[in-house]
Design a protein around this nucleic acid. Structure first.
Lengths: 212, 212, 212, 212
DNA sequence: TATGAATGAGACTTCATTCAT
DNA sequence: GATGAATGAAGTCTCATTCAT
């Protein structure tokens, strides 16, 4: 029944023209907003299309199905994450003391969640429902984990690669959860949560870096 | 899986008779399984009913709507959590050294997630979608957080109440996420994740308890 | 499937005991109220039963099905109508002039509709849906029509029986509609409508009675 | 039955293309037939859709819900009524004597009910059940009443506007009921009822017009 | 290529009625 | 006889996706 048998991982057609790219962007923006506001299932593809002022038919020219929209959203987040960490990496992190290093990372991540509130909220909802997502999402986090692992190994060399991986995985997931939660808490608790997140990360890294 | 009693809150009728309680349990067991396997939205009330060998009409005699089923599931988890921590509390935790104390808590939590794999998986999916859930889930976690706060204050007195709260909140959420993730990882990474979780918690608590 | 194959026209079991009669009365009172308020279909038999504080099982011991409740309601109206007209008949109507005679009849009818606002409202909704009703309702109106025919023939003899019938039919239906409508109109229009109803009836009868 | 255009008010989408208009007409025709035959509540939207050979989804593209179908039916009747009375108005009614004038009006109305047997039958059933209907239906009758009031004031000037309104209201409702009933009576009684309706109207108007 | 009307499987839920206790 | 939990057919309406124009 589907004329398109290629289960593309992302989009059906790579938009090459300016207008198309704009449209895809519009669609993703609207989808993100609606997914956050109403939930993934309550958001209809028609609502996304009309919200983005794009004919539903056109939407399906860019995305093979509803899941692909979340997929593309995931890709977009991944790009952003990558971008942010490249920026972070450009600074002279190595010269910082551990506390400052931790601050930088946590603050950057917190900022990311503030800028992209859908990152967690959307993907949590879709967990296990959309098979295509698994790969993308894991990819997104994996990239982040890898970037952190590299940063850690640069900041404090000497551990095994597997250790950097494990530490990075643990931190990315724990920090991600805590900072995401901090957003939905009332002011005071939210801020305290950021402080605790830093303390958690700092203590953890100290255990690895300063135990000799 | 469990034939314990379930407190209402969204339930239409309190099942008083043995047969009814069994049915409700059946429904919840099947619902849990399907929610985990297919996701909340992909799971139909009819599938739950037929899976539990209960007429759909009967299902709706116990639960006003689909959301109430997740609600009841949440309550059931809450009961279990409470139960587990009461058991833990009964042991002489205070006499343990910090490392052993942490081990106990993490292992207990890990066991809980193994026994109730739906705890995280289901609730993450429904985040923000089901309003009635919010309260239940928050209540569930709040209870857990409070229990941990009390345990911590007993184990190592001297901090302000607000600090125990913050530490407990941080730990419950971080540990919850990490242990939940450990379940879906391959053997080796999964086990390593448990180790890291303990290390994370231990370092963090040491920072609070051993800094003088 | 039905253990009771006797499609009784009214009730399943004639309540002989005081408590039963009271219960039937309760049921009909509640049913009337709900039918008017929510409409026939939106009113559930369970709502009627619980409103009347009668177990649903008992309700079905008095009434074979939902339709029978409307049927019984119709019967009750019929009785009342009959009763009212017997009372009216007892007075010395013959001695009144035509205008006073008309006033009496219209006012009595208006009073009846005020006392039993369900009379029209319920039966209109059910038109054609409940076959058993047809007979009852027709019977109800037929009885009224016959009573008016007799009254008219007494008041002004000399016409053929068929004429009294036709006149009475015409009047009962026209007056019924107008007075029923007058109830749902705002004060002023409602009262005017009663006046016009009298005028309509008076003119019509004058055309028959005073044309010589 | 009629392929005329239908004004929105409860319609989801204004059908602009010929095919759509035809579909809407089809839906309304079938709905009318089923509502009359089985009653409003016993008629399912699926039955209407399949009867009209229109997918259920398409039906719901034109009508937001079941009630809107009755609403559209009401609008269609209103259009027809207006049309008929415009035609009647075009003739030289003023030159007729009262008896002929009454004949014209009653015959026209009788013809309308014959052509649109659903007019009364359907709306009586739904009285008070469908809120959106109230406005439409009242509008339909109101338009008819106003048209008659104008006709009366032209035919026999000299009364107050309020009187024409009251007379017209009274006549429209009374005549409507009687002629509608005449349709469901056996031949002889039906014809007699039309005669009586004319007599009723004539006497009533004579009382107003010839009383000096 | 772009559009948006059309499609129909299927979701959730209700409620008249029964019958085991 | 009295009770009310149990039943499941059936109703209304949604929405992801297609395809004729």
């Amino acid at each position: 029944m589907a004329t398109n048998s290629v289960k593309s991982l992302g989009m059906r057609r790579q938009p090459r023209q300016a207008r198309s790219q704009e449209r895809v962007s519009q669609i993703l923006d609207v989808a993100e907003r609606l997914f956050i506001a109403d939930g993934y299932n309550a958001t209809t593809t028609n609502a996304i299309a009309s919200g983005a002022k794009v004919p539903i038919g056109s939407l399906y020219q860019f995305f093979p199905d509803k899941g692909a929209i979340v997929g593309a959203l995931a890709m977009r987040y991944t790009e952003q994450l990558h971008h942010r960490f490249m920026e972070l990496d450009a600074t002279e992190m190595v010269s910082l003391n551990l506390s400052a290093y931790v601050d930088r990372i946590v603050d950057t991540t917190a900022q990311f969640f503030t800028d992209y509130p859908g990152y967690h909220s959307i993907f949590m909802q879709v967990q296990g429902t959309i098979s295509e997502l698994e790969e993308i999402e894991n990819a997104a986090d994996a990239r982040l984990i890898e970037a952190l692992a590299i940063s850690l190994s640069r900041y404090h060399p000497g551990l095994a690669a597997i250790d950097y991986e494990a530490i990075s995985f643990t931190l990315v997931k724990a920090i991600g959860t805590l900072l995401w939660l901090s957003l939905s808490q009332e002011q005071v608790l939210g801020e305290r949560l950021v402080v605790e997140t830093k303390r958690l990360m700092l203590s953890y890294l100290q255990g690895y870096f300063e135990s000799k």
